[in-house]
Design a protein around this nucleic acid. Structure first.
Length: 422
RNA sequence: GGAGAGAUGGCAGAGUGGUCGAUUGCGGCGGUCUUGAAAACCGUUGAGUGUAACAGCUCCGGGGGUUCGAAUCCCUCUCUCUCCGCCA
């Protein structure tokens, strides 16, 4: 979340910048500033009360030692009065703190100055494209190709679980594993430390990365244990550093993880859900960096370059879009989506999202670092998919298909697949 | 699932009602010494809030209670560990 201090120092800037996200912050800011003034006033009076109580307690201790019981008793009476006032004030105070926090978490992250205004994905800005998007007349969508080659089985997935949970079979399963290994190996080469993470997280973790309270309905929830199934490895991966104070020399922290991801995708039925386009469970390799605030935009470029490289090595035509204010996530300051072109569907499919959260997540999770002679300050967090599997597989199947119904395996995957054609 | 033990500063580990934000050791940082390093010695070393700076206030797993006063006593929750059972 936005830090209270920033909001207090630049209330108008917060309001103006959130307009880009189509968020009217004016009344929130007003409320927050008002509550904060009240809160500080109560805090001050409470502190004075407590200071007096502490003083009295010390005096009583000494009076008892010197045997002056009568005087001690008088002080006790004063304390009992103070305690009544204390009780009221501390109740008031925690109420104000609760209100303040509840309002503050409703504010989205401030968008970076380069984020364009816009209402929806239509207003995103295409900043880069690569590859050949020409389509041949024989090209079929991946669900048809995959059915012919016995790589995917959607019906059985429905039987076992439900829609959105396909099973990968034969070369389909192997291709999936090849892609995972390729992505992990590339991440390792780029200096990311591989981590295996839990697939369920507790409430604190989901809150820290910003899934709660915003996206509650998008996550699968295990009631008995109060756990959430992760919608992305970003959640456990970033939460490793929740409540940690790093040394400046620890930067940059680079981590990657392969995981399954679970998304309820409530409200998206019917559209774009055919085949592998939108699933409830899918695999992804995620990269996360925790860096010095001054470096975060440089690092964002580095992460973009990493994803570009992956797509180019796979030979998939893609474009990069800068998300507009209407499409960018609640927590992000600047996000670039990567979309590959699937020739069988003649559609752009989002396969990666690379974001700089600046200190938004760090503030929630108290992820800080200590500079040489300074106080602890908030770090910046970034993440990116590198990459999400199903749509990559869809594009691969469609874009690499041959007229006689086979799939040419990209060079970089051939060793992993132990073949060059399916 | 059953039984027991425990949760204190970066780590280890004291502290069972008063001057304890907390002995001590290790680690970290600074210094003396040294050509340099090590060793030794000296000093320093939590976070939040607050202030112009002090002061003050809060924090010994979370919440509640007893008391003039709680790391210390009571209740409760959570988590961790050990043993038994079950099990990939």
């Amino acid at each position: 979340m936005i830090t209270l201090n920033f909001l207090k120092e630049h209330p108008q800037e917060v309001i103006d910048r959130l307009k880009v996200k189509n968020f009217d912050a004016e009344q929130y800011v007003e409320i927050i500033l008002a509550i904060d003034t009240q809160r500080r006033d109560i805090q001050k009076r409470l502190d004075n009360n407590l200071a007096r109580q502490n003083q009295i307690a010390k005096q009583i201790g000494q009076l008892f030692k010197s045997g002056n019981v009568a005087e001690a008793q008088a002080l006790k009476d004063e304390t009992s009065e103070l305690k009544v006032a204390e009780k009221n004030m501390s109740a008031e105070l925690s109420e104000k703190e609760r209100e303040l926090n509840n309002t503050l978490v409703l504010l989205p992250n401030l968008p970076h100055s380069s984020v364009p205004k816009g209402k929806s994905a239509d207003d995103n800005e295409i900043v880069y494209s690569w590859g050949d998007t020409s389509v041949q007349s024989f090209m079929k969508p991946h669900w048809d190709v995959a059915a012919d080659l016995k790589m995917l089985d959607f019906e059985t997935g429905v039987k076992i679980t439900g829609a959105g949970f396909p099973i990968y079979i034969n070369k389909g399963a192997k291709l999936q594993r090849a892609l995972i290994n390729f992505f992990l190996d590339k991440a390792a080469q780029a200096g990311y430390n591989e981590v295996q993470v839990p697939y369920m997280v507790n409430e604190d973790s989901a809150y820290a990365t910003g899934q709660l309270p915003d996206k509650e309905g998008q996550m699968y929830y295990v009631k008995e244990d109060n756990f959430y199934l992760i919608p992305t490895a970003e959640v456990p991966l970033t939460n490793i550093y929740r409540n940690v104070i790093l040394k400046e020399s620890d930067f940059p922290i680079k981590q990657c993880a392969y995981s399954a991801c679970f998304r309820r995708e409530a409200g998206s039925y019917g559209k774009d859900v055919r085949g592998l386009n939108r699933l409830h469970q899918f695999d992804k390799v995620e990269i996360v960096q925790i860096v010095h605030p001054e470096k975060s935009y440089e690092v964002l470029e580095e992460m973009k370059a990493h994803v570009k490289n992956l797509l180019e090595e796979l030979g998939l035509p893609y474009r990069i879009v800068r998300l507009c204010g209407g499409d960018i996530s609640f927590t992000s300051a600047l996000t670039f989506d990567f979309e590959v072109f699937s020739k069988g569907q003649q559609k752009w499919l989002e396969v990666s999202s690379v974001s700089n959260f600046e200190s938004f997540q760090a503030n929630r999770m108290k992820l800080r670092f200590k500079s040489e002679n300074g106080k602890p300050q908030l770090a910046h967090t970034l993440n990116g998919s590198a990459l999400a599997l199903p749509r990559i597989m869809a594009a691969l199947i469609e874009d690499c298909q041959t007229e006689d119904g086979h799939i040419i395996i990209p060079k970089v995957l051939q060793a992993y697949m132990a073949c060059d054609l399916i």
